[in-house]
């Protein structure tokens, strides 16, 4: 698996983790380049469907990160998000979606080092787990794809 370059999607909040990731860069800390960062107003805004869509579109791993509890710019967005992720992770487990590939974390604007560590450790773990084919494969085999390829007339 040494030639496997994982794709990792990070859903981060604008106020803490995005600023934290900025700090990682301005502090010249090197971290794994596999991550594609998507900036959200708040972790409370990260719809669980977006995570499923990321897997559908070929992500091998996902990071969701925002402000520490009590630090939310909107007071309670991360608290709501935390409840949602507790339920989400359990449902993923129950339906057989590999929740080991999803890293949840709190990274503040001052924690540039922690962000580098989160990305690096997630990348290592995903490399260890290998490409996530199971999820995206069934959409490739599915009806839409046949339709798009033109093998089904309609």
């Amino acid at each position: 698996m040494s030639d496997f370059t994982p794709k990792i999607t990070a859903f981060v909040c604008n106020w803490c983790t995005y600023a934290g990731a900025d700090l990682t860069g301005t502090s010249r800390m090197k971290y794994s380049a596999n991550v594609k960062i998507i900036r959200f107003p708040c972790t409370g805004r990260v719809d669980f469907m977006l995570l499923l869509k990321a897997f559908d579109n070929g992500a091998d791993g996902i990071i969701v990160s925002g402000c520490h509890p009590n630090d939310c710019h909107y007071t309670s967005g991360n608290f709501h998000a935390r409840r949602r992720w507790i339920v989400f992770r359990n449902l993923c487990d129950f339906m057989g979606i590999d929740s080991r590939r999803i890293t949840f974390s709190w990274v503040s604007a001052a924690e540039g080092g922690k962000w580098a560590e989160i990305v690096n450790s997630t990348t290592e773990k995903v490399i260890e787990l290998g490409p996530y084919k199971r999820y995206s494969q069934i959409s490739k085999d599915g009806f839409i794809n046949e339709f798009e390829k033109g093998t089904i007339n309609g």
């Binding site: 469907m49 559908d56 339920v87 339906m95 959409s139 085999d141 599915g142 009806f143 839409i144």
Partner: peptide, 25 residues
């Protein structure tokens, strides 16, 4: 379009996943 209209393997999973999330609690 969050979930494909027609029945499809992934779309079915997504639909039932979403339904379970919306009914949690």
């Amino acid at each position: 379009q969050w979930i494909p209209v027609q029945s499809s393997e992934l779309g079915n999973m997504e639909w039932h996943f979403m339904r379970a999330m919306h009914l949690a609690g």
